[in-house]
Nucleic acid binder design. Sequence first.
RNA 1: CCCGCCUUAGCUCAAUUUGGCAGAGCGUUGGACUGUAGAUCCAAAUGUUGCUGGUUCAAGUCCGGCAGGCGGGACCA
Length: 320
Amino acid sequence: MDIDTKINLIKEGTLEVINLEELKEKLEKESPIAYTGYEPSGKIHLGHAITVMKLKQLQNLGFKIKILLADYHAYLNGKGTLEEIEKIAKYNEKCFRALGLDDSTEFILGSTFQTKPEYTDKVYNLATLTTLVRAKRSMDQVSRNSENPKVADAMYPLMQIADMVALDVDVALGGMEQRKIQMLARENLPKIGKNPPVCIHTPLLHGLDGDEKMSSSKGNFIAIDDKESEIKKKINKSFCPIKEVDGNPIIELAMHFIFTNQEKILIERPEKFGGNLELSEKELIDMYSSGELHPMDLKNGVSKYLIEYLADVRKFMENN
RNA sequence: CCCGCCUUAGCUCAAUUUGGCAGAGCGUUGGACUGUAGAUCCAAAUGUUGCUGGUUCAAGUCCGGCAGGCGGGACCA
């Protein structure tokens, strides 16, 4: 596969790649490293899955994948004690494997290297280069915005930047909420004599309640190991305005988890409402926006496919 | 280290001058209406009133101690 083809594949389903020239250089390397950091989370949901899918693709394209189980970051973000978080991290590792990352994937617990002198030295160095306001602003989408922000909020992005050096990454992948931290990294790493990674950002899924972001803290997600009945129930309860495609979480699920794997979706529909349909992505969007496809039929179709799509994940989680 | 203010449902806050059954909005859950959800209407659930000791027939309310938060002061050889 030539490099331009690879680049086009990588660009698919992302909001931005910063930048393409550098990505090209990285792809010429023997075994470039791509990484994503995740705060250990009680539930791994479809929002996480978006980035994992992209990591899988990078893996297939020859990248070495490192996943940072960012226990200290979660700790700094007020998610609990280190012990609690590490327990969750183990569970998360299993979730990520269940999503199909192969055995070459390296899982790294943040606390195994984030206290080393050469690491903290970089954090302190970055601390002298970053204003409080800038650090805090980079955390807008990431931090639990507490009434009483802690110094931890300012340390968090600095550590994330130091991680990139410590893990020797060529590509840093993350959801769009990571953007400000990533840009801070690209700005500040050269100041400490390091080359910044290529940054790739994937879209955020809307919450099932129509909220801007699917997130574990808001309970508006589908977990990758949700039972069939739960998936069905959650989809049924979801925000899904008729004829509206933008910001419609169910439409988004179809685009990200169905049409990425197959050309068409079968919508089973009672005869009195017009009978079954087999639709491409474009046809589905068109029919839905015109009102010819009712939300309930959409929900039933998406629900069925999602349950099927996650079947292997559930099986893996049960057997391991 | 000192002084002042704050802490009540998941969240934001109420609780008559002067102790008397702890409430509302939002959210949650359930119903009604829509062939989904939402919106709208109806209904329900939820509390160790930060912790602790005391005064009182009776304490969210008064007094003491502690913890946490916010603000100020002091210290700066």
